[in-house]
Write a protein that binds this DNA or RNA. Structure first.
Length: 567
RNA sequence: UGACCCAUGGUGUAACGGUAGCACAAGUGAUUUUGGUUCACUCGGCCCAGGUUCGAAUCCUGGUGGGUCAACCA
């Protein structure tokens, strides 16, 4: 069949975001000979989270889109906070997300020698000086946003003396905090970052890569732009809070006289009910509020991975949220939509009863076992079918039965007919209760032998379809139900002296023992499933053949809850 | 009471001086051996006031609101 072409309809439908517009304009203007080179520059002081995923997708995406390159660079200029553990996890997470920096793995610490030379250039030009003031004194003399600062008495130090002291700082002659190298710019600038910012501080700390070779370390502002320049990055994309740093970024490049990349800022990602601060996430891990960085409740890449998110779904999410300069809070339901959409296509269905109650078919032969055929994925025929053992005694979901059902309830109730998915239509005859607690212990039904799935009679309309497992064939498994919300609302630490931890959801994790159809044993490697009518689940890394463990990735869209709300 | 940035449905994001569109969310209906999926439909928006223009979400001015900046963190 041939599709009719609508004139003008073949133009790219996706419009450009503002960064792409800048890049395309640069290309049109012949800047950098049309070259596009980006970088993802994390500091290895924590694990990557969903917010970084936006930046990763953006930077690598742009590199790919414009036939350019993207570097991975560790911004490791503060040995106090950084560690190889984080370096390793970051590389793993970027790879898992599906991006490849090829042979372009760099570290700001690779450039320490070059950066030191750049600093000497500034000193020689009279644009930098060694200052002996304490951190407090520097802070006090910096002024405030509305009041100019005052110049350091060391500002007039001679070039030769500066060069000499700077060399001795490097040689380790001075203790931590005793001296810093500062740029000589303008203590009255309305931009605080231009008020003689610190370039180098003394830190007698072992660096995770350079060891004890250095005891002076460059500050972010002095390292980042120059690192971009060394790598000949064309577009240095960062988040909005660095906007006020841009004049300084450009100042260093200009004064040193080196290749000039262009810094572009975008709004960082925020997600409702989600903590997105490295510092706070670190606290949660350190204080034991979660079981590590990869706890499935964490918004870290490894947490999402362990929970069962796919890299595709995260990339789709990043594409969908777009890029702009206004502050934003993305509704977590969009993330959930992306993973549901992906998993609906790829996850095989499985009968799993999370809260079992016994159902006995009074008219079914006691020793008979039938094999029922069930499709693995109604969205994808190629996923094939499987057989499920069916017998007299079954488990169904306790919530699928009500003695005294409300109007909109169309599952099992006394005297009502319901379909057992892929099996028979049954009718509820009676219930047995525990005389003590009054809890229902057995539901007795009769089945209609003419309604086995596939028979003509099975086409009969019944209101509800239940999932089930055979009592003697079912496999038990530990199922971890992670709630939709880990944080009850967006935490605001300024409220009534509360900390964000007061907003942690105490019910964020529930553990139950579920009964699952036996085919789970052979299909476990598949990794991800939809538990019929409950949600998408992934096999946890704690899982063993003897002890199955599942995480709930995300619940199914719950229309039953909506129906309940209406009434 | 400084500098810089931002302002489009509930949430995001388009429109580049010429019909305000898309996605999520929400609602209605149809299909369905998952109250899932799918399909159709509905709801709902240009911060305010001036100005330029035949015509402004778009350009200009002024308000208003929000954000960022005062680590020897990044």
């Amino acid at each position: 069949m041939e599709e009719t072409k609508i004139p003008g309809d073949d133009k790219p439908t996706r419009s450009l975001n503002f960064i792409e517009e800048i890049i395309e304009e640069d290309i049109r203007n012949g800047i950098n000979e049309g070259r596009v080179h980006t970088r993802f520059p994390p500091e290895p002081n924590g694990y990557l989270h969903i917010g970084h995923a936006k930046s990763i997708c953006l930077n690598f995406g742009l590199g790919k889109k414009y036939g350019g390159k993207t570097n991975l660079r560790f911004d490791d200029t503060n040995p106090v906070k950084e560690d190889v553990e984080y370096v390793d996890s970051i590389m793993e997470d970027v790879k898992w997300l599906g991006f490849d920096w090829e042979d372009r793995l760099f570290y700001a610490s690779d450039y320490f020698e070059q950066l030191y030379e750049y600093a000497r250039i500034l000193i020689s030009k009279g644009k930098a000086y060694v200052c002996d003031m304490t951190a407090d004194e520097i802070g006090e003399t910096r002024g405030t946003p509305t009041r100019p600062g005052t110049e350091s008495i060391f500002r007039s130090r001679l070039v030769e003396e500066n060069l000499d002291i700077f060399a001795r700082m490097r040689a380790g002659e001075f203790p931590d905090g005793s001296k810093v190298l500062r740029a000589k710019i303008d203590m009255a600038s309305p931009n605080m970052h231009m008020r003689d910012p610190v370039l180098y501080r003394i830190l007698h700390t072992t660096h995770h890569r350079t060891g004890d070779r250095w005891c002076i370390y460059p500050m972010y502002d002095f390292a980042h732009g120059q690192s971009d320049s060394i790598e000949r990055i064309t577009h240095s994309i960062c988040t909005l809070e660095f906007e006020v740093h841009r004049p300084l970024y450009d100042w260093f490049i200009r004064e040193i006289g080196i290749y000039a990349p262009r810094q572009i800022e975008f709004a960082r990602l925020n997600v409702t009910y989600t903590v997105m601060s490295k510092r706070k996430l670190l606290e949660l891990v350190r204080d034991g509020n979660v079981n590590g960085w990869d706890d499935p409740r964490m918004p870290t890449i490894c947490g999402l991975r362990r929970r069962g998110f796919t890299p595709e779904s995260i990339r789709t999410f990043a594409d969908t949220i777009g890029v702009a300069k206004r502050d934003n809070v993305i509704d977590v339901s969009l993330l959930e939509f992306c993973i549901r959409e992906d998993l609906n296509r790829r996850a095989n269905r499985l009968m799993a009863v999370l809260n079992p109650v016994k159902l006995i078919l009074d008219n079914y032969p006691a020793d008979l076992v039938e094999e029922m055929e069930a499709v693995n994925n109604p969205e994808d025929d190629s996923k094939g079918k499987r057989m499920m053992p069916f017998s007299k005694t079954l488990y169904i979901e306790r919530e699928d039965f009500m003695e005294d059902p409300p109007n909109k309830f169309f599952r099992l109730a006394p005297g009502r007919e319901v379909r057992l998915k892929a099996a028979y239509i049954i009718c509820c005859e009676s219930v047995v209760k525990d005389p003590g607690t009054g809890e229902i212990t057995e539901i007795h039904c009769t089945y209609d032998p003419q309604t086995k799935s596939g028979m003509p009679e099975s086409n009969r309309k019944v209101k509800g379809t239940l999932h089930w497992v055979s009592e003697k064939h079912a496999v038990s498994a530990e199922v971890r139900l992670y709630d939709r919300l880990f944080i009850k609302e967006n935490p605001d630490e300024t409220v009534e002296g509360k900390t964000y931890k007061d907003f942690l959801n105490p019910d964020s994790l529930k553990v139950v023992t579920a009964m699952i159809e036996p085919s789970v044993n052979s299909a476990r490697e598949a990794g991800k499933f939809q538990f019929e009518r409950n949600g998408y689940f992934s096999v946890d890394k704690d899982s063993t053949p003897q002890h199955l463990v599942f995480n709930r990735v995300v619940p199914l869209k719950d229309s039953w809850a909506k129906a309940e709300k209406v009434k």
